[in-house]
Amino acid sequence: MLLIHCPYCEQDLPELEFAYAGEAHIARPADPSKLTDEEWRDFLFIRTNPKGVHFERWRHVNGCARFFNAVRETVGDKFLATYRADEPRPDISSLTGDAK
C-alpha cells in the first residue's frame, strides 16, 4: 500500500483512499467530429505504457474527491511527484535526478 501525496489535501495519505484513473494529459478533443477515425482510435485506446516514468491520473475518491496527476516510476513503483489537474507536466529531469 503506497502513501500518496494529495496535492489538494497537501498530505501523504494511504493508497486505500485513492483510485487509479489511467494515463494523464490525454485531453478530450474539443470537437471529436473533426478527428479522423485513426485519430479518434488513438485518443480512445493508444497509451504509452512506459517502463519508467509515467504520467498518470489518480482520484482521491475517499478523501477530497479530486482527480489529480502524478508522475510515477513504474519499475520501482515510486511516486516522483503529484500535482493538480490544471497544472502543467513537471520537468522529469528535475524529478529523476536523485529521487529517493
Binding site: 491520473r57 482520484r59 474527491a65 479530486r66 482527480f67 489537474a85
Partner: peptide, 8 residues
Amino acid sequence: MEDYLQTE
C-alpha cells in the same frame, strides 16, 4: 461524471 466535470 466527476471525471468529465473536473478534468474536461
